[in-house]
């Protein structure tokens, strides 16, 4: 346990920032690259997790528990968002027969 608690002396904070930035960019890439709406949703989850990881890293490096409470709230909001979003996707699939993003252009100007 003593060895585990010494992470912040071994790994600098910049490494966590770069890891989170990489994960966030991969999420943006998936959002832009794929046409399947479910994959786009999963990319959003990946971006949320990158932010969560960064918040926990900041919280550990600053010795402040508030960041972890905010991560808890982000998880709560993500769970609610996924429940609603997947219900909407199922409705879209019932109405239009696909979850292709390019088929969802009814609101396009």
């Amino acid at each position: 346990m003593n060895e585990i608690t010494s992470t912040i002396q071994v790994v600098p904070l910049e490494y966590y920032i770069f890891l989170s930035v990489t994960l966030f960019s991969i999420g943006v890439l998936g959002m832009l690259l794929r046409r399947n709406a479910i994959i786009a949703f999963m990319s959003i989850e990946l971006m949320l997790n990158a932010v969560n990881l960064l918040m926990v890293a900041f919280s550990a490096f600053r010795g402040d528990a508030k960041g972890q409470v905010f991560v808890f709230f982000i998880m709560v909001v993500a769970a609610a968002e996924v429940a609603i979003g997947l219900a909407i996707l199922t409705m879209i699939h019932h109405n239009r027969g696909s979850v292709d993003i390019n088929a969802l252009n009814k609101l396009k100007w």
């Binding site: 585990i4 608690t5 992470t7 912040i8 479910i38 949703f41 999963m42 989850e45 997790n49 969560n52 926990v56 890293a57 919280s59 550990a60 972890q68 991560v71 808890f72 998880m75 993500a78 769970a79 996924v82 429940a83 997947l86």
Partner: peptide, 24 residues
């Protein structure tokens, strides 16, 4: 876990991999 956030690690496994990904 290696950042000492053990509660959030458990919540991550239960909520994200347990609930959200099963929903997906």
């Amino acid at each position: 876990i290696i950042l000492n956030a053990d509660f959030l690690a458990i919540v991550q496994i239960i909520v994200y991999t347990g609930a959200i990904m099963v929903l997906f």
